[in-house]
Structure formats: C-alpha cells, structure tokens
Design a binder for these strands. Structure first.
Lengths: 212, 212, 212, 212
DNA sequence: CATGAATGAGCGTTCATTCAT
DNA sequence: GATGAATGAACGCTCATTCAT
C-alpha cells in the first residue's frame, strides 16, 4: 500500500565464492524436489532441508519460491535442449537423427530429474514456461523441422511429419526418465534398461516392426 | 479388477441412488483437478468447487483427500488399461499391435485427463499405485510380453524387446495427452493433431524411417 | 499463476445470526487493536486473541487483514463524521458550532478508539483512506465551509478561515482521545477531564484568552 | 536533559568522529521511518536502507531496534519541548503565550517528523516514554501551569484551566504536522497553510469567535 | 444428507538479531 | 568499523479435517 517500502536485504550483485556455492546447492536441491512434486506440490522447507539450509537462509539467496523454480528451469533448459540444436543439416540424415535419439536417451539416463522437472511443468499446463514454448522453443523446433523436411524431399527419409517425428523421439526417450517409477516396476533387467531401450528404438525407427 | 489400489468393498446394500450419483460427481471433479495439479498440488476445496458441493459434504462421501485420489485412480485405471487386455494372441500380430496403438491414441484424445492423472502419479514416484504396478500391472504386461515374444519367435515380427515395444507405444500415444500444453504450443494444425500423429506413428513403426 | 485457482471457502452471502455476531465481535476486537498499533503494527493473531477466536476462524469471516481494517474503518467513519453533517445552516451560528464542538468532545470520550484509528491512519499518510479524504470528506467539509463563510459574511461570526476553524475543532476535541496516554499522565483530575476541557474550549473559542 | 528515556551515558572518551557521524545518520534515518510507521510498523532494514548502511553495521551502533527508537525520541524531545521552557514568567502574558503558539507552529512546519514521532508513540499508549511523561514532562508542565495560573490570578488572562490551555495549543499546532496527510487533501492553498492557520489561531485565541 | 463454522498444522515470507570475517 | 551470511521466531494466510446442527 501507499509508497513501496524498500527493505529488501539481499546478497549483492558481486558473486562471492560462498554465494555461488550456495546458489548451486539450492538449485540442485530444488531440482531434486521440484522434479518429484511439481511446483505446487513442493515446499520451500523441503528444498531447504534438501539443501541442508534454513528456510530463511535459502530465501536470502532466492527471494521467492517462484524465483527458485524459474532459476532451476532456466539452468536446466539449455542442457535439455542442447542435443536438438546439434542436429546438423549437412550430416547424413539417418546418422543425425540417430545421434539425436542417443543423446536424448543418454540425457534421460544421466539427468532424469531435468526431464521430470519439465514433464511436471508441461503436464500441469506449462504455467511458467508457456511463453518460452510459444516463442523460443517453437522457433528452434521449426528450424529443425525444415531441415528434416528437406531430407524427406531429397528422398533420404521416408515421408513423415517432421514435427511428429520429433514428438515421437521426445516421448520415447524421455519416457525412461519421466516414468522410471513404472519401468522399474515392470522390468527385471534394470541394469541394461537403457541399452535395451536403445536397441529396440533403433529397430523400430529404422527398420519398422514387421519384417520385410 | 484393479482392487490393489483401494482394497475397498463396493458399497452393497444401503447405497442409495443419490449417493452413487454424488460419488460419481466427485470422482469426475477430482479427475479434473488431480490430473492438472497432481495430488499434493490439488486441494479439497478445488474439488468441492468443481463438483459444486460443499467441502463438508464431499468429505461425507470420501473421508479424506487420499481416499478421493485412490478412488479416482481405481475408477480410471481399468479404462486406461482396457486396450492392453484386448490384444488377441490369436489375431494377426501387426493388426493386433496397430489396433492397440490406435486404441491408446483414441483414449489419449478422448480422455486425456486420465492419462495425465497417471502421468502425475508415476512422475512423482507412484507413491500410491506402486504396489499395483508391481503386482497386477506387472502380471498383465508380462502376459502380453509373452504373446509378443511368441509372435517374434514365429518370425511374424522383427526382433525387439516386447517390454520396450510396449513402453514405446505408451510413450508415443500418451505423449499427446500428457504434454498437450506443449504440442499445442508447437503445432499449427491442432485440428488434425491426432490424425497426423497416427499416420506418422504407423509409418515409423511399420516401415521405419529410412526408405529401403 | 496460470488460470485462477478457485478454492475460496467463505461464509455465504446470507447473514445468519452467528455470522453477524462474529463479524461484529471481530470488528470490535480489530478496532481495539488497530486503534492502538496502527495497521502495520497490528497482527491478525492479536485481533484473533482479542476476539477470543482462532486466527483461521477469523480469516473465515474476513479473507485478509486488509479487509478487516477497511471494514473497521468503514464501520467507524460514518459515526465519526456524523456530528459534522448535523451542522444546520438555518441555526444560530454560535449554537451550531458549539453543538458541534460538544458532540465531537462527547464522541472523543465515548469512543476514543475510533478517533485513534483515524489518527493512526492519517498519521501514517492515510494509505487506505486517502481517496476517501480527497473525495467524499472534501465535499462534505467544503459544504460546511460555505455555510460558515456565509455566517461570517452576515457578520454573525468573526472573520476566520472556516477550514482552519474546522481543523482547529478537530484538533482540540480529538486530542483528548488520541493523546489520552499523555493527558492522563499530566492531569490529576481525570474524573472531570472532559468537563474541564469543554469549559476551557468554550472560553477560548467564544471569548478569547485576553479579558476585554 | 530528558534523560528519563534512555538512561545512557553519552559516550565520553573513545567516541571517534566517524562514530558520531554515523550515529547521527542513523538517528536521522530512524526519525524518518519511525515517524511514518510507528515503532512496530517500522523495520530495521528500512532504517538501514534510509541511512545507506547495512543492517549489521547499524546494529553495531545501536544494539537493538528499541535502542534506536529510544535514542531518536530522546534526541527529538528536547527540541520539541524547548519552546515550552521559553515561556517567561516575567514577560507579558499575551505576548508569551502567542510566542509559544508561534514557536510550536513553526516547529510543526519545520520538523513535522518529530511531531509525528511523538504522536505515534503517545497514540499507541506511550509504551516507551510513559515514564518520562509522568516525571520530567509533568514537572515542566506543572511549573508552566503555575505561571499561567498566576497570570490569571493577576487578571491578565481570562479564567481558563492552564493545563487545558496547553493541551489546546499542543493540539492546534501539532495537528498540522501530525495530520498533514489530511490537511493536504482538504486544502487548496497549501502554500499559505501555516500562515492561514496562524492567523485563524490568533483570532480564535485572542478575540474569540463571536464578534463582541 | 448437507452445510456453515471451527481449528491445528503448515505454507511462503519477513524480521530482529547474531556470527564470522 | 563494516558487512555478507545465517537463523529462530513470528507474520499473513491456506489447508485437510472435524464438529454441531
């Protein structure tokens, strides 16, 4: 009310060693928690606990729960999208796509929490990254769809919808991160889970299911 | 079926018409809410509002939030798994599998909330249906894996891991329900979304991506 | 975020007996607390305690601290301004003004908390009622200033600024409510405080301080 | 003087120039903040910001919020009461009293924050300066009341209660500082506000309202 | 059956104060 | 002297649940 009351007491813009450390500690803990419970289902206390830090101290670094969430999303997004940017229009189509699938699978294995973080966000309607999806991601994906379409036009790939091909790859690879609770319950050989998945994916995508 | 979840007797005698009606109204509202926000992110008040009912009355029918959640899960699970049970060992393998894919895609289109409900639950570690996954679902899936393996052994299908084939189909079809917030942002032709998806899926699964 | 989450569970618009009672109980307690500590210095817990009610129940009747505050202000304002509206242009000027002074003094005695509530609000910059002051109060006061000016023009009152005369009366009468902590410390005869004040005020206003 | 408030020794030896400077900086900032929001409504962070100083450093000079508050009160009180001490028993009664009124009005104009500081404190029951009011201020006021009473006894002033005359002067003059938020809203000619007030006050106090 | 009223526990956030450097 | 970092206690408010009618 009335004029704004200026009383924020936050870390300065200079980034000291301890500050960078703690911010990273928080981001890591927050990824852990948010990826499991989603934004609304997570509590600041959980994150603070997970970071072995008091709530008050955590909020000294990030003023609100929302800011933590956005920071985690931002931190994770670039890593998560990196493989897509790597698709090389000059490369061999099959090689490029297969490299993409493998990279996404590897990411699902190495950083499943990042996948779950986005899964939760998108599942709940993408309230925070909706705008990003509509602008930056859309541009990136569109560009790659054009590349794929050119490959198809050159007869190097079977005629499919490039967009749905991408959806398809996302779904198939991220599934192992997002729904690992389920795959773990249904699979015996969890040791070789990702290898088996990779092998099966290769067959399906490149050979199809029915012997020719 | 799927009794592993609530372990409750269906109310036998003493279940009036209005009771059944109201329980259904609650289940519907709860599916709406839980599928969007997940268990912890949803509130009883939201569900009560969505069911045009007072919180107190809602809790007369289901004593706790957890009970509502479990009931929705149970109610929805059987519908969601039904297509899988329909795979006919006596049928033509390609036809059977394609019928399954189509049925799952149709369900994703007609009842995306059910898909999101499970997605949320599993994404968050399947805290409630973990036991169900480990027992009933596992049995069902194992049985179908055996069928598929037989088809492979008979040379009617390319050699793939049946389990991963199923994961693959789940991922590819449910993706359009679970992540519709994203697909909507990236697609122009949302009208024909599911038709395009179906067509692309068919090509990929049965022809593969590279022209032979 | 995203679409508004509707989950308010508030008393209906129908005003039951218990509801009216409790609202009144809260308003009374809130006047007590706000008049002493001001808006920012008061806590919901204090008000709840003062109303012998749990915080949660209090917030069942008034959704926010601000709403309570505004309700108390509104409830109190009309009573507080009532004497001013009573000044009768047709009456005898001295009688009318003296009646006003007496009424304000009586109100200071009977309801000092109301006076302190406004005093705190205005002292802190009138963040909530600033708009009211600039519009409704200004109109009311302007109208009365015109009346007083006419009396002056008719030679029935000494030439003074009507506006400042009103400020003067407000100050002198409300002082006994607003600063009673001080007057109590400095006065022995607190019994006859208001009578003495009235007598002195009458002399000062109508006779002046220096014997003629 | 006014030692009843903090009961602290002025730092003797060991008080560097920078210390004194910073203490003053803090006092100034604290007056700014406390006078607007009152004790409980003000925060240490606000004061630190206003003093362009870190909270920790501020609390190096004054160990607690309460100490700051008491120091501001003490610092300000003497200035605020100074005019009253100036009333000269040997002078002409009307002149002396009018000089007092003018001095108080001038102070209201030049240092309204001091007035608001006390207003907030007294309004909230004088929790900190209650003792001072009951002892030192009471003595000072009593002495002046005796003087005024003598003037009355000598027939130099109309018979009024000296104490209430003083209250009256306090109220009328401090009103323009304490409730400036209101006077600003109701007055057009804010330029000449204090001149108009002074003129009206002079008329009222010395001539009375009704033409003789 | 149905609901308005009530609450303890917990939520995200702020605050006065302390500590280490 | 000065400050960034840290925290327990409390704040305004929400939530799942209970109670009385």
């Amino acid at each position: 009310m009335t004029k704004a009351i200026t009383n924020k007491q936050r870390p300065g813009s200079g980034t000291s060693r301890i500050q960078t450390q703690n911010r990273q500690r928080i981001i890591t803990a927050a990824l852990e928690v948010f990826s499991t419970y989603g934004y609304r289902g997570s509590t600041v206390a959980q994150i603070a606990d997970s970071a072995s830090m008091s709530k008050a101290n955590l909020l000294y670094y990030f003023p609100t729960k929302k800011e933590i969430y956005l920071s985690v999303l931002e931190e994770t997004l670039s890593e998560w999208l990196q493989p897509l940017t790597q698709i090389n229009p000059e490369g061999d189509p099959a090689d490029e796509i297969w490299a993409y699938v493998k990279a996404k699978l590897a990411l699902s294995k190495s950083n499943p929490k990042a996948s779950r973080l986005f899964a939760n966000e998108v599942l709940q309607g993408a309230p925070m990254i909706g705008n990003f999806l509509r602008t930056e991601l859309r541009e990136l994906v569109s560009a790659k769809c054009i590349v794929i379409q050119q490959w198809i036009d050159q007869g190097k790939l079977t005629t499919v919808s490039p967009m749905h091909l991408i959806f398809f790859i996302w779904a198939a690879t991220q599934h192992y991160a997002d729904f690992s609770a389920q795959t773990q319950c249904l699979t015996d050989d969890t040791e070789n889970l990702f290898d088996d998945a990779e092998h099966t994916l290769k067959t399906l995508i490149f050979n199809g299911l029915v012997p020719q």
